[in-house]
Amino acid sequence: MLSIRNVRVRYGPIEALHDISLEVNEGEVVTLIGSNGAGKTTTLGAVSGLLPLAGGQIHFDGHDITSLAPHKRVPLGLIQVPEGRRIFGTMTVAENLDLGAYARTDRANLRNELDEIYALFPRLAERRNQAAGTMSGGEQQMLAVGRALMSRPKLLLLDEPSLGLAPLLVKEIFAVVKRIRAKGVTVLLVEQNAHKALEVADRAYVLETGHISMTGDAKTLANDPRIKAAYLGA
């Protein structure tokens, strides 16, 4: 479904991604783990289109999206939940959700999506008319996910969804990832919490200073001594 081939990204003279290739198949949860600064968020930026490529190609669902504008990738079924949530703080919860559906042309069906999302996140339903920025961090993360789901994506790019959340909420967020997958949405998950990410994912890629150092089945990687030593603190 998503195929990244030999992608390079530069910030000025510094190359942040060197020759990255990865695949995400329909129905999978794939995780990208690695330490701070390894290039996880940069990889997602390349997929969602916010960062221009210095080389390589990206294909999604049969389309070459290598140089497609970011907003034109959303109607194809590709949407990113950005790191740090980036919700529209002064707007209400309902308005935020509505903006997630901006690119949709079938606005008559929005009601169903909205009901589904309110069922998935009952807290959002309670707070639909509240300014989004006044909610707790966990609720804001739920909103960021709900907002992205409003676009009815085929592939959801999740960037550090557990960042800065209390342990209980981290658990909840990963439960949500499972439920999203059960809805038939493919997920590419970027996480620092490698332990949790490997638990929920089918496959994983390990990023190290801008290149992929290991890849494989999530369970196998979780038991790999090198991974354990470097990312799982065991």
Partner: peptide, 24 residues
């Protein structure tokens, strides 16, 4: 209106608006 909401979104966070499919 929809376009008004998009204007507000762009003014709050242009990159996030773009990620939501808004033609900024």
């Amino acid at each position: 209106t929809k376009i008004g909401r998009a204007m507000r979104a762009v003014s709050i966070d242009r990159a996030a608006a773009q990620l939501m499919g808004i033609p900024t």
